[in-house]
Amino acid sequence: MQPDISVKHLNKVYGGGFQALKDVNLEIYPGEIFALLGPNGAGKTTLISIICGIVNKTDGEIRAAGHNIVTDYRSAREAIGLVPQELHTDAFERVWDAVSFSRGLFGKPPKPSHIEKVLKDLSLWDKRNNRIMSLSGGMKRRVMIAKALSHEPRILFLDEPTAGVDVELRRDMWEMVRKLRENGTTIILTTHYIEEAEEMADRIGVIREGEIILVEEKNQLMSKLGKKELRLQLQNPLDKVPGELTLEPVELSEDGYELIYTFDAQEQQAGVARLLRTLGELDIEYRDLQTRESSLEEIFVGLVHE
């Protein structure tokens, strides 16, 4: 399948000599939701800005919807919608006019029925005649999404789409993103909310100091890099981990009432059975046990701090 976004050997060095991107290679396929994660200053926004034509690349080749973003920039950009991180809006414009402006700018003839649909989908229809400056932050964020969707792009970039929005709006946006994907739109989002990526993404890329350090299916990533933890609450406290258990990565809590066994989520759970059997043999009784899997956030923190 031809990727919707193809980035090959992309480098970006800013005027001052700072290298923001280092030999970035990335492919994003039609209809997927791709989450790009990385700490502040990792290069996420630079990467998106280059693909969208806002920042010049130093070298490398980028294609969007099969079109080179430099030599065939019109076709490439027609296919892309961008919701930037900052709330950049023209305060004095009315919602309807602002969204219609975006459609025209991207070379599409007027289509009021589409603008109406977008505004209704984003709960902006009642606000269509309001000036943007009179809207709340969350509503302005919706306007920016409406502008990005006004020209019916097949690729949508969402740069920190839910930064600073309330929980309800965040859930609404997730719902909207899912609907877009169902209609075949490819979605690339950057986010600080790992929960967001965990909730929505099909694949995840992690960028650190300008380098893509990992691209993986979300589920595979969770199982490959995720850890599981078994906590056993003991009937009676222990002074130290019994010698028979030292083969397993087992720790004892400070008060001696809890044994903590950590293992790879991918592994067969033979270790758990072995641990429980050994405890039985040693007559160590436990009141309760709990298991938990590490979240994407813990995986992400582990990756970027390696």
Binding site: R77, D90, L105, F106, G107
Partner: peptide, 14 residues
């Protein structure tokens, strides 16, 4: 100044 230039720069306009 307002940052809305991003839209013009990312649009298919020469």
């Amino acid at each position: 100044f307002s940052g809305t230039i991003y839209e013009v720069l990312s649009a298919p306009v020469s």
